Simulated scan of single mutants.
Amino acid sequence: MTDHLTEPPLGGMRAYLQSLMPSLVPSEQRVVRLCIDNPQLVSESSVAELAGHAQTSPATVVRACKSLGLEGFQHLRQILLRDLGAAAWDAARDTELEGLGPGDARHPVTTLFARAAHEIRNALGALDYAAFDAAVASIRSAGRLLVVGNGASLPPAQSIALRFLGSGRVCEAPADVVSQHVAAALLGPGDVCLAVSDSGMNLFTLEAARAAARNGATLIGVTSYGKSALAEISTHALVAGAEFHSFNDETVVGNIVQMLLLSALHTAFGASSAEAAAAKADVLRVVYGMVERAEPPVHE
């Protein structure tokens, strides 16, 4: 399993906290919830004051910081203060841009896209970039590549498999769970299983992922939560997107970050690759040929 970053990038602390909070005990979750909901309060508090706000003990506050991979409470405060400054700068810039684009800012379409754009900017707080680079290298050198996903994660998994095929990276992406499990069980050392699960807890996806890992294949897990079952068993855990779950009860946005992360994985795979460029050109020729054959005849 890939270790988590102990200090997320600028503006990424909220996403980092969201990705790890489900793995904490309830008393630690209350501390983290305050950090997410009121970082200003936390940054201005002492350990004892934060413990009072969270209705827990100072020792629990310190344990929560350690569970997050931080050095302690002062380390937590420093990162929160850093991100508060970045957020203030972003807010000032957004205010300057208000009213410059088309559409009413109160319209549901504008509101949803604005919120999604804001969250996407901060979604990489939990991503381990070293794990991402290692995942790309594994895919490049893999003997076989299997992509698995189920439920709401099936469309992103199928989509990225098609893109890999279009870049010359032959892969398998069966849609049914039995075929996924059989294909995973046939993987071995030197092969790669790319498993996509937003929650990291889908039982069907986990079965295939565990089968691949048992046989020595490299397991790349794409999930929103840093200590989910999928992240725990992955050779390379790519964690991003938990922040979207703060408002996805009413909107279908949970897989946006996963799709973007998978697209980045595919882009990095094909970067500076003559083989990938040639494969894309071949695919385009095939697609153009299909389109030409599908065009209806012109009647005079």
Score class of each variant (00 low, 15 high):
residue 245 H to D: 15
residue 172 E to G: 02
residue 66 K to I: 11
residue 180 Q to M: 15
residue 174 P to V: 08
residue 120 I to Q: 07
residue 54 A to H: 04
residue 294 A to W: 10
residue 17 L to Y: 05
residue 224 S to R: 14
residue 50 L to S: 00
residue 48 A to T: 13
residue 289 G to F: 06
residue 70 L to V: 05
residue 151 G to T: 03
residue 267 T to A: 15
residue 147 V to Y: 06
residue 291 V to I: 08
residue 121 R to F: 14
residue 225 Y to N: 00
residue 106 R to Q: 10
residue 113 F to S: 15
residue 135 A to T: 01
residue 8 P to E: 12
residue 227 K to S: 06
residue 231 A to P: 00
residue 276 A to R: 09
residue 245 H to G: 00
residue 171 C to T: 11
residue 265 L to R: 05
residue 279 A to E: 12
residue 68 L to H: 10
residue 148 V to R: 01
residue 238 L to F: 07
residue 66 K to C: 02
residue 42 V to W: 14
residue 25 V to I: 06
residue 190 G to Q: 14
residue 177 V to I: 11
residue 168 G to R: 02
residue 200 G to R: 12
residue 11 G to W: 11
residue 256 I to D: 05
residue 202 N to A: 10
residue 274 A to M: 04
residue 119 E to K: 04
residue 267 T to I: 11
residue 20 L to H: 09
residue 243 E to S: 13
residue 191 D to K: 14
residue 216 G to F: 04
residue 163 R to T: 03
residue 71 E to Y: 10
residue 289 G to M: 08
residue 175 A to E: 11
residue 74 Q to P: 00
residue 116 A to C: 11
residue 202 N to L: 10
residue 80 L to N: 07
residue 73 F to L: 02
residue 204 F to L: 15
residue 135 A to C: 03
residue 44 E to N: 05
residue 134 A to G: 02
residue 254 G to L: 08
residue 55 Q to S: 11
residue 202 N to R: 10
residue 103 G to I: 01
residue 152 A to H: 11
residue 279 A to H: 06
residue 122 N to V: 11
residue 129 Y to R: 13
residue 81 L to G: 06
residue 167 S to I: 03
residue 214 R to G: 09
residue 58 P to F: 15
residue 86 A to K: 04
residue 239 V to C: 00
residue 159 S to M: 12
residue 34 L to D: 06
residue 106 R to L: 05
residue 8 P to N: 03
residue 82 R to D: 01
residue 33 R to L: 15
residue 200 G to T: 09
residue 3 D to M: 13
residue 25 V to S: 09
residue 186 L to A: 09
residue 67 S to H: 03
residue 112 L to V: 11
residue 188 G to S: 07
residue 259 M to Y: 14
residue 211 A to M: 01
residue 129 Y to T: 08
residue 134 A to L: 08
residue 93 R to T: 12
residue 108 P to H: 05
residue 295 E to Y: 10
residue 32 V to D: 08
residue 248 N to C: 08
residue 211 A to Q: 03
residue 191 D to V: 03
residue 109 V to G: 06
residue 177 V to A: 12
residue 66 K to P: 01
residue 197 S to E: 02
residue 256 I to Y: 15
residue 96 E to I: 09
residue 259 M to T: 07
residue 64 A to G: 02
residue 201 M to L: 07
residue 134 A to F: 14
residue 240 A to R: 01
residue 242 A to W: 00
residue 156 P to A: 07
residue 200 G to N: 12
residue 134 A to Q: 12
residue 278 A to N: 12
residue 21 M to Q: 13
residue 131 A to W: 15
residue 77 R to V: 12
residue 15 A to V: 14
residue 226 G to L: 14
residue 44 E to K: 07
residue 92 A to R: 13
residue 223 T to I: 01
residue 129 Y to S: 08
residue 211 A to W: 10
residue 215 N to S: 08
residue 218 T to N: 04
residue 66 K to Q: 15
residue 227 K to A: 14
residue 44 E to Q: 13
residue 213 A to S: 10
residue 184 A to H: 00
residue 200 G to K: 08
residue 75 H to F: 13
residue 222 V to M: 02
residue 275 E to I: 04
residue 59 A to Q: 08
residue 300 E to A: 11
residue 164 F to C: 01
residue 190 G to P: 01
residue 236 H to T: 01
residue 290 M to I: 05
residue 225 Y to L: 03
